[in-house]
């Protein structure tokens, strides 16, 4: 019984570490898949106050512009995945979530604060970056999305 349980736990750990090792690959694939679409890449964590405020807005943007080739991809940087899942239960995300518990993607993007977001054009190039989420910047962000979706 104990042996079975430890094998089960070990395989879980193995799978988890595999998932961690592949967080970067996971993002690469997601971005490749989204080529030709405008991507709003958002880094968030369950403990980050402004992230809480950004979720309803991200859901709204996803719903409003998905027909215009727009997509939100988010990266969660919680070290403890269960904390992120608890957060998502309270504030469901209507967009994809990539788990980056070791901060590999975060380090690659050299985040300057939380939340951080990047706008990626249809050619897959990062065209702008934002740190933090405050209400009076919402319309500015939305305008940027509109501009990019209009581009070829």
């Amino acid at each position: 019984m104990v042996v079975f349980r430890s094998i089960f736990v070990l395989s879980l750990i193995f799978m988890a570490s595999l998932a961690q090792a592949n967080s970067m690959t996971e993002l690469d694939n997601a971005l490749k898949e989204a080529k030709g679409q405008v991507v709003y890449l958002d880094f968030w964590a369950s403990w980050c106050g402004p992230c809480r405020k950004s979720f309803p807005w991200l859901n709204a943007m996803q719903a409003k512009y998905q027909a215009q080739n727009f997509k939100v991809i988010s990266v969660n940087v919680d070290t403890d995945r269960s904390a992120a899942e608890k957060f998502l239960q309270a504030l469901p995300a209507h967009f994809s979530v990539i788990y980056d518990p070791k901060g590999k993607i975060a380090r690659k993007f050299k985040l300057k604060g939380m939340p951080s977001s990047y706008l990626i054009n249809k050619q897959g190039e990062v065209v702008s970056a934002h740190v933090g989420f405050i209400d009076n910047k919402k319309s500015q962000y939305e305008n940027e999305i509109i501009q990019l979706t209009k581009q070829k």
Partner: peptide, 11 residues
């Protein structure tokens, strides 16, 4: 710490 490592400090 890096900005994404503030899980404990943010409590």
């Amino acid at each position: 710490v890096e900005p994404w490592q503030r899980d404990l400090l943010a409590k």
